[in-house]
Design a protein around this nucleic acid. Structure first.
Length: 478
RNA sequence: GGCCCCAUCGUCUAGCGGCCUAGGACAUCGCCCUCUCACGGCGAAGACACGGGUUCGAUUCCCGUUGGGGCUACCA
């Protein structure tokens, strides 16, 4: 028995560029609702604009969606493979007198529009070809006979009821002179054919909805529910675009973001559930509903995304993080593989890294064969005064290593053995050691670093630092 | 220009007539924790765009103004 919900939703991007943040959020909302009600999620590629559509863009869309965990149950369907369907629908409209051939050239149309605008009139199609029912020999498009009276009300899932005057509707072109359908027509034919029950999309399509409803009605097709989600904008309150920095979802992967973090951040842009900020995909699916979707547009805030990512980095499974970190390390020239040692490294880093990129940069010292000291750090901490304690610590750690235990606890004891008798504070020794081991004054806890580094690397680096100080002292005397 | 949508801290938002001297989160600024950096804890600052109504009572409902956005293509 089929107990699944009959709800069918779709994401229908046009492959004219990379998959951007706004598109991904639309996809996410569709996917979440479909999963929430146990319905079907369909992917459809709207590639009828053959000038601007590219195979690379299609790959980018599929890739981005997979990365974010938005799996589809049907498709991808391609509109360029469904042309017969649109043409057949056009024929039906033509036969029913709900469409007509139009031979007006783009030039005359453009001239007319300009004139209308200049005179302060509405730039609508003048209806020159209305009623032309026989196929012209000249190049022609097909126009839809739009209703001229009455109103159309869209009972929107997020905006509520929105009413439009049908007199505002234009006789729009449904079939271009190149034989391909236009957007407003193809969506209707496809959504109906695919039995879409909820059309959820950006609210830049709200004004298109009455035009589409008119087509549904002319074709005698049942109406789906519509839901128009507000858009995502840049800090300048303009539609998000390349100007605003990274907007392609794959860029976020390269910048070291986790897909669950991007999903989490995006779902909170326009949707909320009380005061909760962190949601797993599973939680979103359980909680998502249109009643929680807001009406107003939201400004994309990279800083909050960074924070959300940090939250997910801390929660992430260490082995998975290690696997994801590898390419970032390789990009920096470190040959590593996922082994227990890398796991330890990641473990020491995950709490304090906001992104994988940050983790790779911050943890690079673990992998370096030679430590370069930051000049200021060396200046301040690798001084002759610490030569003796450093030497003593090195000896102590050698002993610790020889004893076969090199854990944080044993390391700390070695430190105390140096510190205690001298009445030194931990910081006075920890910082020089930190510079010796990492080259900088910033790192995870020093005992943890030493334990992770292991005796061999630790002792080599300490000796090198001692040599460095001695050499510099010698140079100073000369 | 016309039509449509939107309007709570800088940003994301809670609020669905009295619980609001408006709550949370990011960012900012203090303090605490502390071997550095983070994390964490505590605290500060910070908003209902404006004007009319409706109501015993409006952030919440209605109208207008203002501001922002979208559509107005043989792009999607």
């Amino acid at each position: 028995m089929d107990t699944a919900s009959p709800a069918r939703l779709r994401f229908a991007p046009s492959p004219t560029g990379y998959l951007h943040i706004g598109g991904l959020r639309t996809a996410l909302f569709n996917w979440l609702y479909a999963r929430h009600v146990g319905g079907t999620f369909i992917l459809r590629i709207e590639d009828t604009d053959r000038e601007r559509s590219t195979p690379e863009a299609i790959d980018a869309i599929l890739d981005g969606m997979r990365w974010c965990g938005l799996d589809w149950d049907e498709g991808p369907y391609y509109q360029t493979e469904r042309r017969d369907l649109y043409v057949a629908a056009v024929e039906r409209l033509l036969a029913a007198g709900r469409a007509y051939y139009c031979t007006c050239t783009p030039e005359t149309l453009e001239a007319y529009r300009k004139q209308a605008l200049a005179e302060g009139r509405r730039p609508m199609y003048p209806g020159t070809c209305r009623g032309r029912t026989s196929r012209p020999a000249a190049p022609h498009a097909v126009r839809f006979v739009a209703p001229q009276t009455g109103v159309t009300t869209v009972d929107d899932l997020v905006k509520g009821p929105v009413t439009f005057e049908n007199a505002e509707l234009d006789d729009l072109v449904i079939l271009r002179s190149d034989g391909w359908p236009t957007y407003n027509f193809a969506v209707v034919v496809d959504d109906a054919d695919m039995r879409i029950t909820h059309v959820v999309r950006g609210d830049d399509h709200l004004a298109n909805t009455p035009r589409q409803i008119a087509i549904y009605e002319a074709l005698g097709l049942p109406l789906p529910r519509f839901g128009h989600v507000s858009m995502i904008m840049g800090p300048d309150r303009q539609k998000l675009s390349k100007r605003h920095g990274a907007t392609a979802v794959t860029e976020y992967r390269e910048m070291g973001y986790l897909p669950e973090a991007l999903d989490n951040y995006l779902v909170r842009l326009g949707w909320s559930h009380g005061d909760q900020e962190i949601f797993s995909l599973e939680e979103m699916v359980r909680l998502f509903d249109f009643s929680g979707v807001g009406k107003s547009a939201a400004v994309f805030n990279p800083e909050k995304l960074l924070w959300v990512n940090h939250q997910w980095m801390k929660r992430a499974d260490t082995a998975r993080l290690a696997r994801l970190l590898v390419p970032h390390l390789e990009r920096r020239g470190y040959r590593v593989e996922v082994d227990p040692w890398l796991l330890r490294v990641v473990e020491s880093l995950k709490e304090r890294s906001k992104t994988l990129v940050e983790m790779a940069d911050f943890g690079a010292f673990y992998f370096k064969t030679r430590i370069e000291y930051e000049p200021r750090a060396a200046e301040k901490h690798l001084t002759p005064e610490v030569l003796e304690p450093l030497g003593e610590l090195t000896a102590g750690l050698e002993w610790t290593a020889a004893a076969g235990r090199f854990d944080a606890q044993a390391v700390e004891e070695a430190f105390q053995a140096v510190l205690g008798p001298r009445g030194m504070k931990l910081g006075a020794l920890a910082q020089p050691v930190r510079v010796a081991l990492t080259g900088t004054t910033i790192s995870p806890g020093i005992f943890e670093v030493i334990e992770t580094l292991g005796p061999e690397r630790t002792l080599a680096r300490l000796r090198e630092a001692i040599a460095f100080i001695e050499e510099r002292r010698g140079a100073g005397r000369a």
